[in-house]
Design a protein around this nucleic acid. Sequence first.
DNA 1: TCACGGCGTTTTGTTTATCGAAACAGATGC
DNA 2: GCATCTGTTTCGATAAACAAAACGCCGTGA
Lengths: 297, 297
Amino acid sequence: MPRRRPAGRNPDDLDPESTPEAGDEHLDIHDAPDPATATPEQARKYNNRSVERVVSMLNVLQESTEPMSLVEIHRSIRMAKATAFRYLWTLEKHRYVERDAGGRYRLGLGFVGMQSRDLEVLQDRARPWLERLRDETGETTNLGVLDGNLVRYVEVAESPRTVRMVSVRGSRDPLYCTALGKAIAAQLPAGQVAELLEQVDLKPRTGHTITSAEAFDAELDTVRRQGYAVDDGENEEDGRCVAVAILGTRLPAALSVSAPSVRFTMDEVPVVAARLAEVAAHLAGEPGGHRTDQAGG
Amino acid sequence: MPRRRPAGRNPDDLDPESTPEAGDEHLDIHDAPDPATATPEQARKYNNRSVERVVSMLNVLQESTEPMSLVEIHRSIRMAKATAFRYLWTLEKHRYVERDAGGRYRLGLGFVGMQSRDLEVLQDRARPWLERLRDETGETTNLGVLDGNLVRYVEVAESPRTVRMVSVRGSRDPLYCTALGKAIAAQLPAGQVAELLEQVDLKPRTGHTITSAEAFDAELDTVRRQGYAVDDGENEEDGRCVAVAILGTRLPAALSVSAPSVRFTMDEVPVVAARLAEVAAHLAGEPGGHRTDQAGG
DNA sequence: TCACGGCGTTTTGTTTATCGAAACAGATGC
DNA sequence: GCATCTGTTTCGATAAACAAAACGCCGTGA
């Protein structure tokens, strides 16, 4: 009954040229199509311009802090003005976009509650814990999930302090320079980690960033040994971050606490990590779906 | 600099035939297009099949509790299997959908954090308050926003009790039979309320449902007078619900508490309403959020 | 007052990408 | 073996996009 998935890898984002080689792994059946694995020609075979444009349109609107005019949109997507107009008209009809008083477009209400079930469950479970951790530590706490070869901040509880680490919910960062990324990668099979890193160039974000696959593998060993991952000024010069993986879910996810280095010293790291591990275990083990009280009967 | 929006009304959802008349109000400029106002012929002029199909596909996947196969999808959207395949392939490439081990499709991670800024801000502010209210009352609490001519549950804190009112985040209910809907409608200009009701038939959901526009208008007067709205078994036979509007935001929104009638009597309604009003005032007035300061210069 | 340029909206014929029916291949059940 | 369920691929028919231009409307500045 259950069919086997022909081939599975993580699709690539808006970078068509970042998938150089085609057949790096044996394909079980035949030339199974996969958005990421495909050669440029194969990719063009299935790729649908209309769909891609809808996606781009929504992404552009998401990334923009303020509403955009029709002209701004059609120029940033590089599509005819008339076409963009019709797209937006249809999207508005379905509430995926809406218009402000000036007629400018922004995302509509059609997206509320739209995300995969498993993620939503994890988010709902994690949210109160993130807030509690934030209150305990006074620092920004995050829930990250592997998305492609990046880690996505799906939930954030920000520190109330004026000097703080800021994470934007929904944004993404590379695996190799973040604690969340390391914690997640350390739980993946080695082969998959190699795959995820292939398409990435490990460019130094600070003076401490890991810039070689060998060093990253070694770092993952350390992570596995000590049970938590640290980003010690590797993503932001003055930031420090600790993360612990959440096991037992379908999703490759991790929790983290991030703070300015000046008030989050390396001495405190293991303490916070231990607390993170407790919470992660709660999130993993909790059978009750959402609430902490699981007895009930 | 700021252009005026030619004409503004709320777009209609998947019901093309529910917009009978075309020019019920004077149009400032000329025949300004609007997804909702358009006649069926006008509508077809701008409507884009590709865009509409992307939207339907995402909606179907959202509504489905579990992953769907290609065939299930192409049958429920009524589009060719091959086309659905290509659409999904492209959506997967952009992380709007993903596939489980069996190759079945579900929503991907591309949506995380994708919603209009104002809504997200309101949601983030309201969430802890909803949870606090839930803990205080022991009952389900909701944040609702006007979406088209329906009210959308954008945030829900569910009661822990086994017998409880259940709201699905992201789902929508009519205005005329819900406390949230009444509370929101009571704050809108009378003309807009009439417009919103035009396309709706007030069918009785229970024996207590309001079924005439006149009765609804009278009810809104009551709501304005007492400062809160009540749904007394008008949506669900055995449910009772109180709501208070949130003012001071761009969005027409309201908070509510809903519970089974047997343990939420009419005597308690004003007490809960008063508490809701406090919280609503907090949400409206709270400067700590980000942008309430309009003085500046 | 007027022309100017920018905007959103509509139209046109031509080019191009997309669609849909049907066939194809692998897996499973009888 | 045959029937039938998948997901994939093909190719003539079709619907959409393109470019370019025009429209009405606005705010601006001469």
